[in-house]
Amino acid sequence: MGTGILKGLGVTLRHFIDTYAEDLKYILNKSGVQQPRPLRRQSPKNRGLVTVEYPRERLPLPENFRYVPFLVYDTEKQDDKCTSCGICAKVCPPQCIWIVRTEDPITKRPVPQPKEFYIDTTICMNCGYCAEFCPFDAIKMDHDYELSYYPTQEPHARLVHDKSRLTKPDTYHASIHPTDWHRELADRAAEEAKKKAAAEAKAKAEAAKPAGGAAAAAKPAPAPGAAQPSAPGPEKPAQADADKGSRE
């Protein structure tokens, strides 16, 4: 009776002692170069501490980790990639996205740019549909999961993110999603090559048109005073002439 409890306490004691042994080995490192302390994970073969001492230690996040989305700002064009098409809001399962489109003050026509963009993080389930269906790669999933706030701040203002808080440069997107970023660059290069080929084909077609016109213009014109051939009149059928003669 009680042997299982004693075995469990023995495992805990062994990990407790190994933790200090590993720390002492790390401190007395004689290599001259202080290596960063390896992050520990829970494993039966692990020695010492089996937890990550957050926030002092953080496990590296995988590239496809999904949290609250953010809007991508094009640093090359100095403009938002979002065109306020509204596809992200339509495909969002919990309907946590709403957009106000910019309107031209003179013509009152919509401008392809969001005036306001909101995401309610209290109901966002981080599914990634908005980033997957966006045709302009203007919205991506963020890695920032530390969104806590102080009780003195207004909860609604902290949990409903507006456009200014959601917008981040494309360099940030490249740093957390390198594979996705390289894919976008490859797709952009292929699209530009396709447009260039189409423009070259159109230019060749335009260059071939004046050649036919020049040949027609090179045909010699009749000399001044020369008799111009008269236009042929309508010919009467032979049967109609025979009928006229018989009547006469």
Score class of each variant (00 low, 15 high):
154 E>P: 10
178 P>H: 02
181 W>K: 03
167 T>I: 01
242 A>F: 07
168 K>S: 08
186 A>D: 11
233 G>N: 09
196 K>G: 12
164 S>R: 15
229 P>H: 10
194 K>L: 15
245 G>Q: 12
160 V>F: 08
196 K>N: 14
239 Q>V: 09
174 A>L: 05
164 S>G: 14
164 S>T: 15
204 K>C: 10
182 H>Y: 04
198 A>Y: 01
169 P>G: 03
232 P>V: 09
185 L>A: 06
240 A>K: 09
179 T>A: 02
205 A>S: 07
207 A>K: 05
238 A>P: 15
198 A>E: 04
234 P>H: 09
227 A>V: 07
217 A>W: 07
241 D>M: 14
156 H>S: 14
198 A>K: 03
200 E>I: 08
154 E>Q: 11
197 A>E: 03
224 P>M: 07
168 K>Q: 14
191 E>V: 00
196 K>W: 12
211 A>L: 05
187 D>W: 03
224 P>W: 05
203 A>P: 04
233 G>C: 10
238 A>F: 15
192 E>A: 07
219 K>R: 03
185 L>R: 08
155 P>D: 06
196 K>P: 09
156 H>E: 14
187 D>V: 14
223 A>Q: 04
202 K>N: 03
154 E>F: 15
234 P>M: 10
244 K>E: 14
242 A>Y: 13
225 G>S: 03
171 T>R: 05
221 A>Q: 05
180 D>F: 00
196 K>F: 12
243 D>I: 05
208 A>P: 02
194 K>F: 15
196 K>L: 15
166 L>E: 02
232 P>F: 08
161 H>I: 13
233 G>R: 05
182 H>V: 03
152 T>I: 10
238 A>Q: 14
157 A>Y: 15
245 G>S: 12
216 A>M: 06
227 A>K: 11
159 L>D: 06
205 A>K: 13
160 V>A: 06
226 A>W: 00
178 P>M: 02
242 A>K: 12
173 H>Q: 08
197 A>F: 01
207 A>I: 08
232 P>A: 13
246 S>M: 11
198 A>S: 04
160 V>T: 07
158 R>G: 04
214 A>R: 13
245 G>K: 09
213 G>N: 10
217 A>L: 07
172 Y>K: 06
227 A>Q: 07
161 H>Q: 14
174 A>K: 12
178 P>A: 01
245 G>I: 12
155 P>V: 00
193 A>M: 14
177 H>V: 01
199 A>F: 02
235 E>H: 06
223 A>L: 06
172 Y>L: 10
231 A>I: 09
172 Y>F: 12
210 P>Q: 13
153 Q>L: 10
180 D>V: 00
163 K>W: 01
220 P>R: 01
173 H>G: 07
211 A>Y: 14
175 S>W: 06
231 A>W: 07
222 P>R: 11
202 K>S: 05
238 A>G: 13
185 L>V: 08
205 A>E: 11
217 A>C: 03
193 A>F: 08
199 A>M: 04
243 D>V: 06
184 E>V: 04
191 E>F: 01
246 S>N: 10
168 K>D: 13
192 E>M: 07
177 H>E: 03
219 K>I: 03
232 P>H: 06
166 L>Q: 00
197 A>R: 02
225 G>L: 00
196 K>T: 15
193 A>C: 11
212 G>K: 15
174 A>Q: 11
164 S>P: 13
216 A>N: 12
189 A>V: 02
188 R>C: 09
181 W>V: 02
218 A>I: 07
158 R>V: 04
234 P>F: 08
157 A>I: 11
